[in-house]
C-alpha cells in the first residue's frame, strides 16, 4: 500500500495559478505537480496539498471564485522509477 495524496485539478492553467497565489498569501503548503494520469488524461498542472488544509483551501477557492475540476485523492504505490 502507498500513501494517500491529495490534488486539486483545474479547467485551465490560469485558474491553477490564481489559487497558487492565494495559497502563498495564506502561507498554505502546496506543491505544483503534473496532473497524475489516474486523475485526468489531459496534461498540465495540478496542486498537491496536505489533507489537514483541505477545508481551508476549499474555503479560499470558494471565496475567490476559483474554478476547479475537483479536489481528488489518490493512493500511490511506491514503484521503481522507470526512465523515459
Amino acid at each position: 500500500m502507498g500513501e494517500e495524496s491529495f490534488y486539486i485539478l483545474f479547467p485551465n492553467v490560469t485558474e491553477g495559478l490564481k489559487l497558487e497565489k492565494l495559497l502563498k498569501e495564506n502561507a498554505v503548503k502546496y506543491t505544483i505537480v503534473p496532473t497524475p494520469r489516474e486523475l485526468s488524461k489531459s496534461c498540465g498542472i495540478s496542486i498537491m496539498y496536505e489533507f489537514r488544509d483541505d477545508s481551508l483551501i476549499k474555503r479560499i477557492a470558494e471565496e475567490h471564485g476559483i474554478r476547479t475540476e475537483g479536489f481528488k485523492s489518490l493512493i500511490r504505490k511506491k514503484a521503481d522509477v522507470k526512465f523515459i
Binding site: 506543491t31 505537480v33 503534473p34 496532473t35 497524475p36 494520469r37 488524461k41 496534461c43 498537491m48 500511490r76 514503484a79 521503481d80 522509477v81 522507470k82 526512465f83 523515459i84
Partner: peptide, 22 residues
C-alpha cells in the same frame, strides 16, 4: 504523443516529488 504525456507524471513523481525538504 499521448504515451509520452502518460509517462511523464509518473517519472517526475518518482524522481522529484519523493524528495523531502525541497
Amino acid at each position: 504523443h499521448d504515451l509520452l504525456c502518460e509517462a511523464l507524471p509518473q517519472l517526475f513523481g518518482g524522481v522529484y516529488l519523493i524528495q523531502e525538504n525541497r
